[in-house]
Simulated scan of single mutants.
Amino acid sequence: MPAYPALAALLAICSYATGEWPPFARALLAGLALFLLFFVMAILPGSGMGFGDVKLAGLLGMLLGWLSWTQVLWATLATFLIGGVVAVLVLALGRKGRRDDFAYGPSMLLGTVTALAAPAVLRLVLA
């Protein structure tokens, strides 16, 4: 949880340095939105999601929100897609059962990196 005020302070410094405060407000709103989304998913019966995933979602939401709502959306969609594929593979290989907990953090991080890197990769491919 100490990462929240640390990241907020760093983003506030960036807003102060650039003189642009809308990205800071968007970062805070996106962090809250993803925190709440993942919190609701975590408290659903049988979700298998832990509170660590909820905390990570809020931080990633702040980081992505600083950039744009589009980045938040793409990263969230990529996270669910990657997490779903990994879950199906883990179940198919018999590593875990349907009722077991699932570490969603790696999928969240990979979804974020994918959303951040995708525009640059597409520019290279289409050039």
Rank of each mutant, 00 (worst) to 15 (best):
M1E: 09
P2N: 11
P2E: 05
P2M: 09
A3C: 08
Y4V: 15
P5K: 11
A6S: 12
A8W: 00
A8Q: 04
A9H: 03
L11S: 09
A12R: 08
A12C: 10
I13H: 06
Y16Q: 13
A17F: 00
A17W: 01
A17H: 05
T18F: 01
G19I: 05
G19S: 11
E20K: 14
E20L: 14
W21L: 10
W21V: 12
P22A: 10
F24T: 08
R26Y: 00
R26A: 14
R26K: 13
L29A: 14
L29E: 03
G31V: 03
L34F: 00
F35R: 06
L36R: 05
F38W: 01
F39A: 15
F39N: 08
V40E: 03
M41Y: 00
M41R: 07
M41E: 03
L44A: 13
L44T: 10
P45V: 06
G46V: 02
G46R: 04
S47Q: 06
G48S: 08
M49C: 04
G50F: 00
F51G: 14
D53C: 05
V54H: 04
K55H: 10
K55S: 11
L56V: 11
L59Q: 11
L60K: 03
L60N: 06
L60V: 04
G61R: 02
G65M: 02
W66H: 09
L67H: 14
W69I: 07
W69L: 13
T70H: 12
T70V: 09
T70F: 01
Q71M: 11
Q71H: 12
Q71Y: 02
L77R: 04
A78F: 04
T79M: 12
F80G: 10
L81D: 00
I82V: 14
I82L: 13
G84E: 02
G84T: 09
V85N: 09
V85A: 15
V86M: 12
A87P: 06
A87C: 10
V90Q: 14
L91Q: 07
A92Q: 10
G94I: 03
G94L: 02
G94H: 04
R95S: 11
R95D: 03
K96D: 02
G97D: 05
G97Q: 11
R99Q: 15
D101R: 15
D101I: 05
F102S: 08
F102D: 06
Y104I: 05
Y104S: 03
S107P: 08
L109T: 09
L110G: 05
L110V: 15
T112H: 01
L116D: 04
A118L: 15
P119Q: 07
P119W: 00
P119H: 05
V121K: 07
L122H: 09
L122M: 13
R123T: 13
R123N: 14
V125Q: 06
L126F: 05
